[in-house]
Design a protein around this nucleic acid. Sequence first.
DNA 1: AGAGGTGGTG
DNA 2: CATGCACCACCTCT
Length: 607
Amino acid sequence: MQLKFDPDNPNFEYIKTPEALNKALEALEKETVIGIDVEATGLDPYTSKLLLVQIGKEDISYIFDARKLDLKEYPRFKELIESSKRIKLLHNAKFDYKFLKVQTGSSLTNVYDTMLAGAVLTAGLVGKNPSLKELTTQYCNFDMDKGIRKTFQDHIGPITQAQLKYSGLDTLALFPIFTQQLHELKKENLVKVAKLEFSSTLVVAEMELRGIFIDIERWENVIEDLEDKRSKHAEKFQDLIRPYYSRRSHDLFGNSVDAMNINSQVQLMELLNDKIGLNLPNTNEGILKTVDHPVVNTLRDYRKYEKLISAFGQALLDKVNPVTGRLHPDFNQMGTATGRFSCKDPNLQQIPRNSKEAPFRELFKPAPGYKLVTADYSSFEMRILADLSGDEKMIKALKEGLDIHSYTASLMFDVPYSEDFREDHPDLRQIAKPIGFGLMYGMSPMGLAAQLGVSVDKGEEYMELYFKSYPSVRDFLNNLSENAVKRGWSTTPLGRKRWYKRPDPTDPDYRRRMSGIKRQAKNHPIQGTNADAIKFAFVFIQKRIQEEGLDGGITHTVHDEIVCEVREDQAEEWAEIQSAEMVRAAELFIKKVPIKSEPFIGDVWEH
DNA sequence: AGAGGTGGTG
DNA sequence: CATGCACCACCTCT
């Protein structure tokens, strides 16, 4: 592609006076598409300092010095980036949005995000979001020097020419990438999906800025309690295994010495197999719970606490932001091949469900004077399966609000359905339930047998009974895998695609890889539709927040659940709105089956 | 630094 | 022929 700039000598203007700023704005206001990027001393908008804001046309980049110009003071600057009249090109707009919002008071609208577009165009093929450097190599055919970026880290003193050149290039490169990606998005019918990602990323940015409040003191108490329990089990473990080792139990100073490292898989295998003679294939919980031996029992006790402490202890508390006093996890809206969010630093999508000893979710609280409104979709993926497969009986059962797993069991085993089925035939329901879930993951009869603890023959029999009960489900799932193999991709009703690399037939793992693709293709439209709905719900909810003038916002999401933090006096009314918007979003795709979302208002995160 | 094992979530 | 999807954090070991 013919570039409108010279990658070795990009055209830029360094803006550090109000006069120059006004002149630059005048030029930019005429444009219908502008590119935006920011440079800061770090990644966190609350603790790092905004250094530069680059806003460019396709042939020039205007570089505003945010230390010399207080951009809060220029309404024309705010208007330029907030107006929906122009398309704003950014790479990872969420990052820039957060800095602009916190440090210049301006928002962004009408965004085109080259990173998200790239991710949408390669979902399933690449494990991470594309960098600007990668897209530049791909679409602009030059090599971007990202070495300069780290010179902004903790930067003080004047901006150098090299820094300006690098910063300018970042907005210039966005234009040719945009043009070519747009062409590909249209070709792949991914425009709707990309637009959804672009709209929801601004909502995600707001969610991350808000963060979530936790009760640090009570959290520390819980951890201390867990640590006490862990030590007890650890000491008992060492006492129990000492006879197997010749190492002395105390050093020269009288301190007790561990016989081995309880966290070491290698040393555990040596102990359990070579010394104790249990002959275990591995040391995971599934295997250990089949063994009744004091050492193993103590190890299991220890592990329970070790997990909670290491994953949800001090490491998580260290992530509390020093400025806001809240957790601000990093959500990646294209963090999965299916379109779901992933979450890290900390990953609040893997906080354990509340238990007596570790009630972590109870320690997520609203700020004083606020409530948490939690709403999730009830058995959403089951409803998606029913709707997309069009299976009449499954649809009917969900429409009538029957207990779906009981109803399935009644069909499979030809026992009449009743209100009391769950109590009367728990054994039958317990067979039907894992099939329902397992099928959405492409589970085989053998996997089912393993899960239920029955023979493979029984597994096959049960699955056959399930498919006889819901014949359209079998056809639907088989079609999904066949199409994926034929076309090399699968899709959600919205058009979100997941691509598959065709395995090499000479690969010794060819069969295994093909089976894997077939399973992924059965799951993708279901999980992906859930993701599409949640992202629409994000956009709808954010719009209502603005319309209602709500004092609050989205604070968290876990796949089929959205949590808002709302001023107390508004919570009741908001809860209904939040649920209604989630339902409205899901109903964009699911038309044959009712969608249920029950809100929960509380002083803790639970549902 | 990266891989493998383990285990937390939907 | 192999046999349940999607993630991330922490630990050990190389």
